[in-house]
Write a protein that binds this DNA or RNA. Structure first.
Length: 106
DNA sequence: AACATGACATAAG
DNA sequence: CCTTATGCCATGT
């Protein structure tokens, strides 16, 4: 099974997301190497193997909202999980300005 | 190889 | 705010 490079990078980036923070698809895609991978990121999460440590609930859209396409209406569950991690929500949306993970760049 | 679909982003109306 | 269109990449049929 030859793992695709893209997926590995994407998974790696997502795994680096600290607790209590969230990252958007575009953000992850950009950190993975290309921002056009936003779709691939979504596909990667959909293709994530079961039992992975991938905090998919920390991955949100640019609106700070999930696409509700997780399980069967688990979208609300993700929000709860994030709140439990200390992420603040506003109007059903994450306060991206405060909780969007900003990769410590040097 | 071709077409269609997708857990997205951005632009334009 | 919503819909439509385009881009980009991967996967399934």
């Amino acid at each position: 099974m030859r793992e695709k490079n893209s997926f590995e990078k994407i998974y790696d980036v997502i795994r680096q997301i600290p607790k209590g923070k969230v990252a958007s698809y575009g953000q992850i895609a950009a950190l993975a190497g290309n921002r056009r991978w936003a779709r691939v990121v979504g596909y990667a999460l959909h293709a994530v193997p079961s039992g992975s440590d991938l905090p998919c609930h920390r991955v949100v859209t640019k609106d700070g909202r999930m696409s509700c396409a997780f399980g069967s209406g688990m979208c609300n569950r993700q929000t709860e999980l994030l709140k439990a991690e200390g992420v603040g929500f506003q109007d059903g949306r994450v306060d991206m300005e405060r909780y969007q993970w900003k990769r410590t760049v040097y």
